[in-house]
Structure formats: structure tokens, C-alpha cells
Simulated assay, not measured.
Amino acid sequence: MIDLRSDTVTQPTAAMREAMAGAEVGDDVFGDDPTVNALQARLARMLGFEAGLFMASGTQSNLCGLMAHCQRGDEYIVGQMAHTYRWEGGGAAVLGSIQPQPLNHQPDGTLALADIAAAIKPDDAHFARSRLLALENTLGGKVMPMAYLRDATALARERGLACHLDGARLFNAAVATAGEGGDARTAAREIAGLFDSVSVCFSKGLGAPIGSMLCGSQAFISRAHRWRKMTGGGLRQVGVLAAAANHALDHHIDRLAEDHANARLLAEGLAGLPGVSVTTPQTNIVFVELAPELAQRGERGVVERLAERGLRCTGLYQLRFVTHLDVSREQIEQAIAILRETLH
């Protein structure tokens, strides 16, 4: 089975499992786990922040970040399709009493600067207090341009807002921004440096089994630490997981370029099929739009038909394929053949 549902389906490599098995651990609630302490300090330094905090998931990391920035009755400005608004259970509103102000995206995934400016409320008792701009990079596989990120964060700060980045796939964005021969770590630091806080996932393209990191100032991370405890995130011998994330930072950043190349190969392999429209991928996510007659034949949808042939994806009229370290170039070529046979 070729599984392209998400880059979250990756299995730990043999070397990663070895690092996990040999991890030195302690009780993180007491601050005694040396492996997670080192990881937190390492990623914070790498991205230019004072401190980091290991989280169980990207959802928890974003939630604790939003709650550390905002109080009850505050508002964060966010895109309609951003994870912090649409795909994370409404946690900021439900648990933090933080009002989202969602904005429509431009075709490239950005939020128009004029829309951001118009959404910032005046200091008036009639309105929620606008406190935070939350952006995402990548967004649906799209890379936010550096010039845009600079302009959007500068606008927010001019109006008194803090800035948070959902960088679940930050290193995918960094690899694409740096380009061939560029330094992805430098690019990641430049992206992160525009924000007051950043959340990074280890369990997507980096291939760790679990975990995310929230980075920011020491005072911000202290507030987030309290929220992590309240949301059930007090961790014990977490060094076993931190070792996997540390291994990923050592070995799995630069190889993301292979996933991006495989995504482009997949998109190119589907070009020209009748009733099929493919968006050229910028990173590791490929979206394929299907004519209705291709998506549904009788009671069997295309996702089911593809799975029967050994290819897993998500969607219906729009299919999503995500490349990752457990899928080789040869398997992408097999996936192209399966898709062409199924969608002919």
C-alpha cells in the first residue's frame, strides 16, 4: 500500500528507534528530563528564540500559544483555512474564550494586508480586543513569500498586535524558500524571526512519531507552560520522544527536498488527463480536482477505488496527496500508473 494521505503516517526509521531506545530520561514535570531540555534549548536557538516547550501535538502547541498571547475577550485575526481556526476543534474559543476573526485567503494563501488592517478593532468596549495575528506557513502546501510575511507582521506590530506562526511544516517552507543549494536552517530562522512565537511539528515531514515545539520569549513560554499543564500536557519521561525529534533535526530537514521533488513528479504524471486538474505543488502536497463523473461511479468513490488498487489518499472531488520519507520515487511512479488507470 502506498500511503499518501498525510506526512503524519511515517514510521520511525531504524536509526530513530535506536536513538529513542538509548535516550536519557527524567521526569519532565520536575524539569528533570535532560533530553527534552536539550531539545527545547536547541530548537529555540536554531530559530532565534529564548525558550521552547515540547508539546504532544501541533494542536496543543497552537492552543497554548494563543492562550499565552490572549486573555478572555481578546481576538486573534486568522485565515479561514488556517489550522488554528478551522481544523483544531475551535479550542481557542472553547477553552480560551478567545474570539477568532477569520479572513478570506487570496489565491496564493496570503491574507490581504488591507483585510488585516480593516479587521483590527478600535479600542472600544463594543468590540473584542484585537491582540494577535496568526499566520500559517506552509498553508495547504503553499509557501508564504518572505516579503509578504515581513509586511504582514510589520502591519500587525504597528497596530499593537503580537504575531504567531503555525509552522507545523516550517521546515518544508524553509527548504522551498532557500531553494536548491540554499541553507534551510537559515531560512527557517529568518521566517521565525518575524514572529513573537512559532509552533513547529516534528511528526509531519520530519518523520518523528509524535510531538511539536512552541518557541518564544522566556516569559511567553512560562505562560504557555502553565496552559500546557492545564490542558493535560504535563509530561514525564518524554526524552524518549524528544530523542526522535532530535534525530529528525539532525537527519530529516534537508531530505525534505526529496519529498518536494516527488510531489512535482506526481503532479507532472497526471498532467493532461481529461477531467483532471492538478495544482503545481510548491512543497509536498498535491491537490487534484476531478470532474464529478470521475469522482463517483455508482456507490464507489474514487478514494475507495484507489485504495483497492493499493493507493491511499484523502478527498472526493478534490484529492489530496502528501509525499513523505516513507514513499520513494519508484512508489510515486507506481502511484501515477494507478491514478492514470483509475481515472482514465
Rank of each mutant, 00 (worst) to 15 (best):
L161H: 07
A176S: 13
Q101P: 00
Q101E: 07
H260K: 13
V94I: 15
R169F: 04
I221G: 06
I98M: 06
S277G: 11
F30A: 14
D28P: 00
L103F: 11
N37F: 03
L241W: 03
R45L: 07
G58E: 13
D151V: 11
F30S: 09
N284R: 09
D28M: 09
D183T: 08
G109T: 02
G52E: 02
A295C: 01
S199A: 15
A176H: 03
M16I: 06
W227E: 13
K121H: 15
D254F: 04
Q11W: 10
T84E: 14
M20G: 07
C64Y: 00
S6V: 05
G272S: 08
G140A: 13
Y76W: 03
G301W: 09
E258Y: 05
I191C: 01
D27M: 00
V276N: 02
F287H: 09
M213G: 06
G90Y: 12
L249G: 03
A114D: 15
A152N: 02
A295M: 03
E289S: 14
E75F: 06
S57C: 06
V94H: 12
Q282S: 07
L339R: 01
G298S: 10
E268W: 03
R329K: 12
G234H: 04
K121V: 11
K204G: 02
A117E: 15
N104C: 11
L132Y: 04
L155E: 05
N137K: 00
L39R: 01
C313Y: 02
Q60P: 04
Q296M: 14
R329E: 15
L294C: 00
R309H: 12
G96W: 05
R300L: 11
H69V: 10
F127G: 05
A134W: 05
G31V: 11
Q296N: 12
D151R: 14
L306C: 02
E341D: 12
A68K: 02
R131M: 08
Q71G: 14
V94F: 12
G79F: 02
I332N: 03
G233E: 04
V286H: 05
A224H: 04
V238E: 04
M146C: 03
D123W: 07
G48K: 08
A93Q: 13
L133G: 00
P34I: 12
A19G: 01
A257C: 03
L214V: 06
A176L: 08
M20L: 12
G31S: 09
R255A: 12
G73T: 04
T35A: 10
V78T: 09
G211S: 08
L343F: 08
G216P: 07
Y85N: 07
Q11S: 12
A82D: 15
T314Q: 15
G193R: 10
M213I: 15
G140C: 10
G181N: 05
A21D: 15
K229N: 10
V200W: 03
L214K: 08
K204V: 06
A152W: 00
S61A: 15
F202H: 06
A82N: 14
D124I: 00
L47M: 04
G193V: 09
T279N: 11
T153Y: 05
D7G: 01
A335K: 07
Q11Y: 10
P34W: 07
E180H: 02
